[in-house]
Design a protein around this nucleic acid. Structure first.
Length: 191
DNA sequence: AAAGAGATGGTCT
DNA sequence: GACCATCTCTTTT
């Protein structure tokens, strides 16, 4: 297998979000925006479903959450707290309203670009939060709804042969007031 | 090391 | 008009 690995297929995403989420750990996120390519290994995610009161899809489709009710392997990007962007990967069957929030990544390629975009020197803080990840990878609202498995997609998810952790760290999701007892946050254990 | 607060704007009630 | 799937900086232990 090449070092860059293989792109994940759409069918790979057509499973329930809580099942896709732990499998997304250690996959590569690759984004080419403004001619600059950056890559990182996904190390923290959260699952959201339509049956989940904490999910944007809980109250049914709206203009904002429309991508969550579309086909799997599309991107759902929203503005968080009026300031930050958060990137999700749509999973499940069309109409299911499920997605996985990309919360943190370990920078691999284009680290200098990430430093410039983030304006911080500490490499451990480049993408260790959903808003920071989106900023480091330059994922913005104009990426909302794009198809990650389209051949010309600027953002892709790849498998370079590193398996997900056999026992991911799980816990409650962060920053919400409902659904706090659902342990749908998944993380790669500390090295 | 931990806790608090302000920034800032779309979305939905 | 309230509510955020957050981040950073400042203040306090």
């Amino acid at each position: 297998m090449r070092r860059a690995g293989t792109r994940l297929s759409r069918s790979w995403f057509e499973r329930a979000a809580p099942d896709v989420a732990p499998d997304l750990l250690n996959k590569l996120l690759v984004a080419t925006v403004d001619g600059e390519r950056v890559a990182g290994r996904i190390i923290e995610v959260e699952a959201y479903t339509a049956a989940d009161p904490a999910s944007h899809s809980f109250r049914g489709p709206t203009p904002r959450n429309a991508p969550m009710f579309g086909r799997a392997a599309h991107l759902y990007v929203y503005l968080s707290y009026g300031i930050h962007r958060c990137a999700n990967v749509v999973t499940g069957r069309q109409g299911a309203g499920e997605a996985v929030l990309l919360r943190a990544a370990q920078p691999m390629d284009g680290i200098d670009v990430m430093r410039r975009r983030r304006g911080v020197a500490d490499d451990r803080r480049l993408a260790d939060g959903p808003g920071k990840l989106a900023q480091a990878f330059a994922i913005d609202l104009h990426h909302d709804g794009i198809d990650l498995v389209a051949r010309d997609s600027p953002i892709e998810l790849r498998d370079d042969g590193v398996a997900p952790p056999t026992v991911p760290v799980t816990g409650p999701r962060v920053g919400l007031t409902k659904g706090v007892d659902t342990p749908w946050r998944f993380r790669v254990p500390a090295a």
